[in-house]
Design a protein around this nucleic acid. Sequence first.
DNA 1: ACATCTTATAAGTAGTTACTTATGTATCAG
DNA 2: CTGATACATAAGTAACTACTTATAAGATGT
Lengths: 106, 106
Amino acid sequence: MNQRETRVFRALGDPTRRALFERLTVGEAAVGELTGRFRVSQPAISQHLAVLRGAGLVEQRRDGRRVLYRVSRAGLQPLAGWIGRYQAFWLDRLGRMKQILEEMEP
Amino acid sequence: MNQRETRVFRALGDPTRRALFERLTVGEAAVGELTGRFRVSQPAISQHLAVLRGAGLVEQRRDGRRVLYRVSRAGLQPLAGWIGRYQAFWLDRLGRMKQILEEMEP
DNA sequence: ACATCTTATAAGTAGTTACTTATGTATCAG
DNA sequence: CTGATACATAAGTAACTACTTATAAGATGT
């Protein structure tokens, strides 16, 4: 079924990975900068970033020997869209959110 | 860390479980009614429902020998809150959503 | 070319997950 | 109480995850 939503949910289901994403919302960062903030090795960070990338949540660009990661502009859209579709059923006050989400460009 | 968000993300990260939740947004349903819609056994459905319940996404009530499941009214709030916190960084047009989310009762 | 720095990939592993079948528990009808 | 129905729990297992260390690959400076 909806493979994209699944990948986004699974990617953010890991605390380390979610923390990495949250860090990247502040701004672009290199792998080495991200390593050290967490108690896992550099390969682990690279692997987590690969998963976030596979989910469309982050993008990368080279800068010399470093690789800078940043959040993807449309990365959270599957998640926001999913919530928009289903939360109307349990919380009427947020009915407006669906409209707002639909105003988003694809 | 934020255990609750993790549980919600992980619960919805499984396609079968997400489909179960989506079915429940339409209305209350018994386990037997949910089994059969999916290609997994009844115990598997019960286990998935237990995970959804552990994430605070669904609730249950007995009706005779059946057990009816329904979506929890505040279940998606951790997810909506998380999105509200972070999507402002990548999509300004949805800045209003943060306000809307903050209007939600706790 | 060489040494160094930075990140990615390979290979192995302990722990977790999603499923199965078998069994237990609760409710109801007769 | 007995048997049937509806669901939950137990136990086992193949597949997947998140991590490690070791190594490869890419870029830069000398």
